[in-house]
Amino acid sequence: MTIQLGQIAPDFEQDSTHGQIRFHDWIGSSWAVLFSHPKNFTPVCTTELGEVARLRPEWDKRDVKPIGLSVDPVEAHHKWEEDIAETQGHALDFPMIADPDGRVSKLYDMIHPESDPTVTVRSVFVIDPSRKVRLILTYPPSTGRNFAEILRAIDSLQLTDSRSIATPVNWKPGQSVVISPKLSDEEASRQFPQGYKTLKPYLRMVDLQPLK
């Protein structure tokens, strides 16, 4: 199964370190980040999980629920949690899905046989409160993810959902954004009374005032 942006994320019910989870119900009214790990007790994954736990204030600020997945059973997850807390200084405070039968991994196309037929790649799915997939990232097992970039992308998604804008290359919160080409100059002036800069008719930049 190939998952594409804008599709409803496949629902599933699976055991986790926080008990049985029905994915859509677990998301609730929040955003979610579902990310897979090739295998328990591996070095790169250990650093990633510790980082996600460390970033708890950032997830909460954006109303995002992180949830991990590995093909090992839940008992192994609980043992791994001890190593993560010891070596990374942050105990896991989010669920880890146990997927020993590979059901969820297959559902989300997380196993790429040409990379390794026995483990998942480092998949990332950002899912919004309507259960739509909004971002997909795929890293090889040898490359740890940049969760600062994942947070930046979520900031962009949440901001652009509420305004007729897009975020340009290397954008960070607080920097200028692009006005949608769908807006006429008249409508752009109405929506952005603070003024904007026209570089080309299709490229108009604006500094946003704080939303109230």
Rank of each mutant, 00 (worst) to 15 (best):
W171E: 01
F192R: 01
S162W: 10
Q175W: 11
E187V: 11
R152G: 11
L151V: 07
D185Q: 12
S180V: 09
T167E: 00
I154H: 00
T167W: 00
E186R: 05
S189M: 04
D155E: 04
K197E: 13
T198I: 13
L159Q: 01
Y196W: 11
E149V: 04
S176P: 14
Y196D: 02
S189Y: 06
I154E: 00
N170W: 15
G195Y: 13
G174N: 07
A153I: 07
S164V: 15
L183G: 01
Y196C: 03
P168M: 07
P173K: 02
L159R: 00
S156M: 04
F192D: 02
L199F: 15
R163P: 05
N170K: 14
P181F: 04
S164H: 14
L199W: 14
G195S: 08
S180E: 05
P193E: 10
D161Q: 12
P181H: 06
V178K: 01
S189H: 07
L151I: 13
Q158S: 02
S189T: 09
A153C: 08
P181C: 08
I179C: 07
G195V: 09
L151T: 03
P201C: 09
P173I: 02
D155Q: 03
D185I: 12
A153R: 04
S184A: 05
L199M: 13
I150W: 01
S189L: 08
T160Q: 05
Y196A: 01
V178C: 09
K200N: 09
S162G: 14
Q158C: 05
K172G: 13
P201F: 10
I154D: 01
T198V: 15
S180P: 08
L151W: 02
R152I: 07
R152T: 11
I165H: 03
S189F: 08
I179W: 03
Q194S: 15
K197H: 14
L157N: 00
A153V: 09
N170E: 14
P181M: 01
L183D: 05
E187R: 08
D161Y: 07
V178S: 09
A166E: 10
I154A: 01
L151K: 02
E186Q: 10
Q191I: 13
S184D: 09
K197Y: 15
T160R: 00
A153P: 00
P173S: 10
Q191W: 06
A148K: 09
L183F: 03
